[in-house]
């Protein structure tokens, strides 16, 4: 049984990074959030990744797309609020041109959310992904995270369009069942 808090985040982050490595992803951009901050740390310290943090997820998406054009496999890590920010450039670049990027989103506002500010993120996330024609997996168990990332990256490459993994609070909440 994992300790609460930090160890839970770390365990989920380690599984996510295993997934990114197994998927062959080697360029990671993103903006840190409370649930995936440990992923950013692990990626930054891992020589298998070129890490490019940004202060705006839309810029991060453009950079991921540019890196793919240069032969890298890219992923964008963000809270689902960042999906709204990135959506303008996902539409312009990927709907218009066909560029794959794997999206790894914390699913704030999923059933069980405790923060009022997370509710709008949960309301918008799935309809927005559907509007952008982005297939996605919702992960509520950490032991499914690695495989979900591999599957999303594989689909993204095959369709030359983003695919997403939504990481629910069940993976990181103290009372979550997904640890």
């Amino acid at each position: 049984m994992l300790e609460r808090g930090w160890d839970v985040l770390q365990h989920a982050a380690e599984e996510a990074v295993r997934g990114l490595e197994e998927a062959g992803i080697n360029f990671v951009s993103g903006l840190p959030d409370g649930w995936q901050r440990n992923v950013h740390e692990l990626v930054e310290d891992n020589d298998n990744f070129r890490y490019a943090p940004v202060c705006n997820e839309g810029v991060g998406f453009s950079m991921c797309a540019g890196a793919w054009l240069g032969g890298m496999k890219s992923a964008l890590i963000m809270e689902n609020s960042g999906l709204r920010v990135a959506s303008e450039y996902i539409a312009r670049i990927s709907l218009g041109t066909g560029v794959p990027v794997t999206l790894l989103c914390s699913y704030r506002g999923d059933v069980g959310e405790t923060e009022h500010w997370g509710i709008p993120h949960g309301i918008v996330a799935e309809p927005l992904l559907q509007a952008l024609r982005i297939r996605y997996l919702i992960v509520r168990r950490v032991d499914e995270l690695r495989t979900a990332i591999v599957r999303a990256q594989r689909l993204s490459e095959a369709q030359l369009h983003p695919a997403a993994v939504l990481i629910s609070g069940d993976c990181v909440w103290d009372d979550g069942d997904g640890r």
Binding site: G58, A65, L69, I93
Partner: peptide
């Protein structure tokens, strides 16, 4: 030349490309 950039994303695309190569 990749004529691929649009409003607001051209520098971002070039930045990612430059970091990849």
């Amino acid at each position: 030349t990749g004529h691929l950039g649009q409003m607001g994303d051209v520098i971002g695309l070039a930045l990612g490309l430059a970091m990849a190569l």
